[in-house]
Amino acid sequence: MKDLFRAIFNYRLFVLSSIKNDLRIRFLRSKLGTLWIVIHPLMQVLIFAIILSEVLSAKLPGIDNKYAYALYLMAGTLCWTLFSETISKCLTLFIDNGNLMKKMAFPRICLALIAAGTMLVNNLLLLAAVLLVFAVLGHFPGHHFVWLPALMLVTLMLGMGVGLLLGTMNVFMRDIGQVVPVVLQAMFWLTPVVYNINILPENLQSWFKYNPMYPLVTSYQNVLVFGKAPLWLDVVVLAAVSMVILLVALVVFRRASPEMVDVL
């Protein structure tokens, strides 16, 4: 493990330049450039808000804004997008870069770091767009907003841990790549992104809270929309679990790395 972190440090400039090039190439190939990063999630929010706001807006106490439901959706979407896109990116990361791994000698873990950096930059751009929309709608997050970077870090760490583990396994068992999108779709509807958990029967609420994304999404909504503190106890526990998952993923990746090129 010590050698792994030394390799990461030695190739830090390669990682940073690769993130920059990845973003630059993505923007140059599109006429709208960076706008596409925010268009997709914001359009999803708009569709849900138009269709469901009349049904669920009354279920959001504590928000004195007629666009309350749209605000709630954007906060939850910001968290979910970082988590799900990180997993999706890592899921096919090594398969997509198979030719590069065969032709160049570099620490394979750099690919995961490049993916993490790219996802983080994308999410920061989405955050800027969300805050702009918040301002237009007349809503400004309170002082609890300062905790958002910590929440983003935990979300990214959880997504990278799960994604790196699944991405490594997907090289050897391609069925994983077909199953994970279905699981993520189901998990989205089991997470209070589109709805408020308080609308569910009390006997179901406790079960939904076992979803590992519940404390993160709810904490995003608390700091961005409700002006409340994050669910600290749950978030700290989840951060510890995420770190364990990430360490396990690194160990599995390191042991499987020598065989990856042959399989690819």
Rank of each mutant, 00 (worst) to 15 (best):
residue 3 D to M: 08
residue 4 L to W: 04
residue 4 L to C: 00
residue 5 F to R: 00
residue 6 R to E: 13
residue 7 A to Q: 14
residue 8 I to Q: 11
residue 8 I to P: 03
residue 8 I to N: 04
residue 9 F to D: 06
residue 9 F to Q: 10
residue 11 Y to I: 02
residue 11 Y to V: 01
residue 12 R to V: 02
residue 15 V to I: 14
residue 15 V to E: 15
residue 16 L to Q: 12
residue 16 L to P: 04
residue 17 S to G: 00
residue 17 S to E: 15
residue 17 S to H: 03
residue 23 L to G: 02
residue 24 R to L: 15
residue 28 L to S: 08
residue 28 L to V: 01
residue 28 L to M: 10
residue 30 S to L: 05
residue 31 K to P: 07
residue 32 L to N: 06
residue 34 T to I: 15
residue 38 V to C: 14
residue 39 I to R: 04
residue 42 L to P: 07
residue 42 L to D: 06
residue 43 M to H: 02
residue 43 M to S: 09
residue 44 Q to R: 05
residue 45 V to S: 13
residue 45 V to K: 07
residue 46 L to F: 15
residue 46 L to V: 13
residue 47 I to A: 06
residue 48 F to W: 14
residue 50 I to N: 04
residue 50 I to T: 12
residue 51 I to N: 01
residue 54 E to G: 08
residue 57 S to K: 12
residue 57 S to F: 05
residue 60 L to D: 03
residue 63 I to N: 04
residue 63 I to P: 07
residue 64 D to C: 00
residue 65 N to Q: 03
residue 68 A to P: 05
residue 70 A to Q: 08
residue 70 A to P: 08
residue 72 Y to L: 06
residue 73 L to P: 13
residue 73 L to I: 01
residue 75 A to W: 08
residue 83 F to N: 01
residue 85 E to V: 01
residue 86 T to W: 09
residue 88 S to A: 04
residue 88 S to L: 09
residue 91 L to D: 07
residue 94 F to P: 03
residue 100 L to G: 11
residue 100 L to Y: 07
residue 100 L to C: 03
residue 101 M to Q: 10
residue 106 F to H: 07
residue 114 I to L: 05
residue 116 A to G: 05
residue 121 V to K: 00
residue 121 V to P: 00
residue 122 N to T: 11
residue 126 L to K: 04
residue 127 L to Q: 05
residue 127 L to T: 06
residue 127 L to M: 14
residue 131 L to G: 03
residue 132 L to M: 14
residue 133 V to D: 10
residue 135 A to H: 08
residue 135 A to M: 13
residue 139 H to F: 10
residue 140 F to D: 01
residue 140 F to V: 14
residue 140 F to Y: 09
residue 142 G to L: 08
residue 142 G to E: 14
residue 146 V to P: 08
residue 148 L to H: 04
residue 152 M to E: 06
residue 155 T to Y: 10
residue 155 T to S: 14
residue 155 T to L: 13
residue 156 L to G: 05
residue 160 M to N: 01
residue 160 M to R: 03
residue 160 M to H: 02
residue 161 G to T: 03
residue 164 L to R: 06
residue 164 L to I: 05
residue 168 T to N: 09
residue 174 R to K: 15
residue 174 R to Y: 09
residue 175 D to V: 03
residue 175 D to W: 07
residue 177 G to W: 10
residue 187 M to N: 03
residue 187 M to E: 04
residue 192 P to E: 10
residue 193 V to H: 01
residue 195 Y to K: 01
residue 197 I to N: 02
residue 198 N to L: 11
residue 204 L to F: 14
residue 204 L to Y: 15
residue 204 L to W: 15
residue 204 L to M: 15
residue 207 W to R: 12
residue 208 F to V: 15
residue 208 F to M: 15
residue 211 N to V: 05
residue 211 N to L: 13
residue 211 N to H: 10
residue 212 P to M: 13
residue 223 V to I: 09
residue 224 L to D: 12
residue 226 F to M: 13
residue 226 F to A: 07
residue 227 G to Q: 11
residue 227 G to V: 00
residue 228 K to H: 15
residue 229 A to P: 08
residue 242 S to I: 01
residue 244 V to F: 12
residue 245 I to H: 05
residue 247 L to W: 10
residue 248 V to F: 13
residue 249 A to Y: 07
residue 252 V to M: 12
residue 254 R to D: 15
residue 255 R to H: 15
residue 255 R to E: 14
residue 260 M to D: 09
residue 261 V to S: 08
residue 263 V to T: 02
